[in-house]
Design a binder for these strands. Structure first.
Lengths: 245, 245
DNA sequence: CCTCCAGTTATTGTGTCCAATACAGAACGC
DNA sequence: GCGTTCTGTATTGGACACAATAACTGGAGG
């Protein structure tokens, strides 16, 4: 428990758990269960849930409980559109303010992500479903963009961009295929292109590259989902698909 | 009280009151006061406040109460940058989906806003500080863009754009000056340009016009604030300026 | 006159209790 | 046999009570 109020701590913990996929979309969260899990009363739990509801991560169904939201295909696409806009903005700003240290950090994040991408693709081809690896991969991706946010020094932009990004989660990275490999690789290379544009102090260039990168990520995700849907018919949880990126 | 849970009703009411400026930025909200005002216990009040906190409208200062946030100049600028991005996106999408009825509604909103702008400028020149008029003006402006959001049929985009827009409030529209008149007029004309681009089914055109429009609104606001600051030295509430337009 | 300190008070944070609502399943009528 | 209503139970929504923390008063000492 880091800061003052328990409601905030719980909200943070739940947010993490939901975004990381530990709590799958569609789940219903029982207040009493959470309260004993966190060893507090129901009151702070409910306040935390209210916060998550305001963030759009869960929905209150009055007198029925709260349910972790699952995104429809359309919402997913929208989220990437929003992220594309906000990322371009952040990247453009960052390109004008980035220090050499920031650039070094960016390069670090880039190679780390590159490495994880390779390993993830290999694992997929080998049929291994390494959830931890997928989480790391996603985390490394976020880290790259986080460096950019930090350099942009624009708290509001950062907050909203991350809100759009938070709409996603890890589930199914286990589809394989030549086209997917290509998309993964493209996605990876784009990081380098963005970094170089920033290093060259080209805000406009970095902007369009960032935009294209995010949109491209969206296409990658959709391709993965298509593959997975084709491979595994899988019981479809009614109302909103079960993935959450 | 419209819907099921009281916390939501209260949150809505408070949100409206804050955004409309009825509750000025910097105020501290006493839970007990609110609870008797809404004739409920403190519990739903607190939940409502948690929601507002998640939306960024208020901040919890542990054991000290909640305070209505006031925006710094920098945050204000950021909010307009974000809005510019999201509005362009929404407008671009809307341009591809807008029906003739939507276009008619858009034109309605346009002339209404035009009318109110004229009246507002006149009132300013006459030295009248008609708060109600200012509210109407702002509301009409929002209505115009709301038509676009509705046509875009992109709930997430709409939600986030409105979140950025909600960061604003009415306070000081009473500064006058030739340059301000010009900016007001420009702002007004831009609505027409946007509508015409949409009517011409030019998503790209509408996009850049929308972007420029929002940025231009931001400049208008900053100009107003400058004028007001110059005219009235005014006691500066410490930490974050008192405006929240 | 100012500063520091302690006791008091006001206000928030949390736990507990009760009422209201929704779902499950049995009893009942057709 | 099937649908309907009733009742029981689980779970939420809200009220209230208590504990914890921070502001506020007043006074003592320098």
């Amino acid at each position: 428990m880091s800061d003052g109020t328990k409601a905030d701590d719980i909200a943070l913990a739940l947010e993490e758990a939901i975004v990381s996929g530990e709590i799958p979309p569609g789940s219903v969260l029982r207040q009493e269960h959470l309260s004993e899990q966190f060893a507090v009363s129901r009151t702070p739990v409910r306040e935390a849930l209210r916060r998550l509801a305001a963030l759009g991560l869960v929905t209150f169904e009055p007198n029925r409980g709260v349910r972790v939201r699952s995104l429809s295909r359309e919402e997913l696409r929208e989220a990437f559109l929003v992220r594309a806009e906000l990322e371009s903005l952040a990247t453009e700003i960052a390109a004008t303010r980035m220090t050499d240290e920031d650039l070094a950090a960016l390069e670090n994040a880039e190679v780390r992500f590159s490495d994880l991408t390779r390993r993830l693709v290999e694992a997929s081809h080998a049929g291994r479903q390494d959830l931890e690896l997928a989480r790391e991969w996603l985390h490394a991706n976020h880290s790259f963009h986080d460096v950019i946010y930090a350099a942009a020094q624009s708290p509001l932009v950062e907050r909203m961009a991350k809100a759009a990004r938070r709409t996603f989660l890890v589930k199914p990275f286990w589809a394989t295929g030549a086209d997917l490999d290509e998309l993964f690789e493209k996605n990876d290379h784009q990081h380098r292109a963005i970094r170089e544009a920033i290093a060259a102090r080209s805000p406009e260039g970095a902007r369009v590259l960032a935009r294209e990168h995010v949109l491209s990520s969206g296409r990658l995700l959709e391709a993965i989902l298509d593959k997975v849907a084709a491979q595994a018919p899988e019981r479809a949880p009614a109302g909103g698909v079960g993935y959450r990126l």
